[in-house]
Nucleic acid binder design. Structure first.
Lengths: 344, 344
DNA sequence: AACTATTATGCAACCGTTTGCACAACTGTT
DNA sequence: AACAGTTGTGCAAACGGTTGCATAATAGTT
């Protein structure tokens, strides 16, 4: 029904093989022939069959994106990890540029634990994978990688087996933000962390520690099992019990920061006047919060672009040595750290 | 390299044709043979080649999702339309259940205007399409539909040519919310609308008007060219000039509501005490806002599920008459409407 | 002018399924 | 016992590209 390579061949007066070679930029075609073929293809508005091409070449030109969802059903809480706004747009942008397509799916805790290979991978619908989020565990990652596909991690990394990844500078961001609190002359700063087995939590904790140590102060870290508003609330209450004299909080992300702020206020400690708080991620709503959140901005869109680039490179070029990419972050100063109010 | 249907056939002692029939539940296979084939397939851990199957059947088992992005590059503002949280998870959930896969891409204003057919459609990588958002214009929709694919719209509809769609009850939601303001004894309520050519704006305006008319009051609508925090700010200022005596605002979405609140406060009018505000969408951050937003909740996850269901039905069953689905919304009462503070 | 090297193209096999058609093996009828 | 009807299975031709190999045509060498 649609036009095939034979139609084009017939119209150009050549064989299908020649058409194929022209269309794939293979060498050894005379300029005149090439021209005639292109002309014919254009006139017939020819688009090669994806299925046939895939069958012959064992390539799909699809990239799989695996996101993380918290259990089946609608997303409930306001969290960090399902908030990587713009990453899909970034990936799509770059993939389109390179002639690839984006297949999207989500896995939950259970699937990760059960090494439940997504259908699109098992069926060979993709040439490569982008795995997003620290909740995607090492065993799962390795299991997917063993299916023979190039894999790029986002917001996560695997030390043992070198796998390509793109992340933001978690440590640097936390360092900068903590440093900012120190410049406000805070000396008793708590780090409200997420799960210790999440990379971003650990790295941000490291940045925080480094800043404190440089200032000759004692780090105080509270690990929490999640990074929601609720755990932020609980976390700060724990912290306030253990360190009643604290004057500032570095939160592992914005949701946690908001929880902390709420709990502080309920406990009668004004933010930022009595307790300063900074977050991480610069969620779109961070500037709307009252007080507006001082936080660390992550360029998810750019991360998406780089992840897509990388996975395509892994597919198309060989002998690639694994690369770990770190994208710079930016401290966005607003009110919650105690800086004077400005209009932004 | 991977196992093929021939391997399975050999092991089961039958022809490839028979294996194919068993695996596709075709009739006319003896129970014993069926059993042996299934056994063999299982033992060899056989997965049919997607490409070969697509080539033979002209089906891909892929569904395309087309989202809207505001121009190339990273998303800038906090808006309504790129915030349909959970819709992709919902679509993925249902598609996985039905044996389909999700291809994702985004279009911007220019592409929509230029009738720029996404590659995945032009190349025939999908069997059906889900188009999300009111910014995807009728001409573009029809153009895509003319490519011969089943199309389901989300948060949008086309009256002239009946096309399947799934939306939330915009009118009912706005009606309910406005009604709630009326119960607070407000009599001078303004509707802060988005673009008049966005379906959701229009429908919400209708709900608002109906509520006012039932109360015997004069509707006051201000249309704005977009639905960001900024346009919310500008919009309320315009409204305040025109109707200085207004006591309540029904905003077309949460971002607009926030803009309105900010501008009111800057103008020295307390929210909700002097001016009550309600939003629409119940964005994840709406409850964090101060004052927390009274707003209308949309179940994007469920909308995603229904849209996916529908597009698969259109593909697999014939003689489907177009269906317009309306999902109920829920008024979420918080503080910005002037209701007493509660902990939620 | 004969011969080799190079260039441009075609032939045909192959990628791994599905499916129309033919046919063999049974079952049941007269 | 011959025959029609049913049931289960195999053969082989698609589906629409890519690519190794052969070969015709041309250019280059002595």
């Amino acid at each position: 029904m649609p036009t095939t390579i034979k139609d084009v061949a017939a119209r150009a007066g050549v064989s299908p093989a020649t058409v194929s070679r022209v269309l794939n930029d293979r060498p050894g075609i005379s300029p005149q022939t090439r021209e005639r073929v292109l002309q014919a293809a254009q006139e017939l508005n020819y688009t090669p069959s994806v299925a046939a091409r895939s069958l012959a070449t064992a390539r799909t030109y699809n990239i799989g994106y695996v996101g993380y969802k918290y259990g089946a059903g609608p997303p409930t809480d306001l969290r960090s990890s399902n908030a990587t706004p713009g990453i899909l747009e970034g990936i799509d942008e770059e993939l389109t540029r390179r002639g690839y397509h984006l297949l999207t799916t989500y896995v939950d805790k259970e699937m990760v634990r059960g090494l439940d290979v997504p259908n699109m991978v098992r069926q060979g619908r993709v040439d490569g994978l982008i795995l997003n989020g620290p909740a995607i565990r090492p065993r799962f990652i390795l299991h997917l990688r063993n299916m023979g596909l190039p894999v790029v991690l986002v917001d996560n990394l695997l030390n043992e087996t070198a796998i390509d990844c793109v992340l933001c500078d978690n440590e640097g961001g936390a360092y900068q933000a903590t440093k900012h609190l120190l410049e406000h002359n805070h000396e008793r700063i708590v780090f409200l962390s997420g799960p210790a087995d999440w990379l971003s939590s650990r790295e941000r904790a490291v940045g925080y520690r480094r800043a404190l140590q440089e200032a000759g102060l004692e780090p105080r870290v509270v690990f929490m099992p999640s990074t929601t508003v609720d755990t932020g609330r609980d976390g700060i209450l724990t912290a306030l019990e253990e360190y009643p004299d604290l004057t500032a909080v570095m939160a592992v992300n914005d949701a946690t920061a908001v929880g902390a702020i709420q709990a502080c206020q309920q406990a009668g400690r004004a933010v930022p006047d009595e307790i300063a708080v900074v977050g991480f991620d610069d969620e779109p709503w961070a500037q709307l919060h009252i007080p507006s959140l001082t936080t660390v901005r992550i360029c998810w869109y750019e991360i998406g672009i780089q992840a897509a680039r990388r996975v395509v490179d892994l597919i198309e070029r060989d002998n690639q040595v694994p690369i770990q990419m770190r994208l710079a972050v930016e401290l966005v100063i607003r009110q919650s750290c105690g800086c004077p109010v400005t209009t932004d």
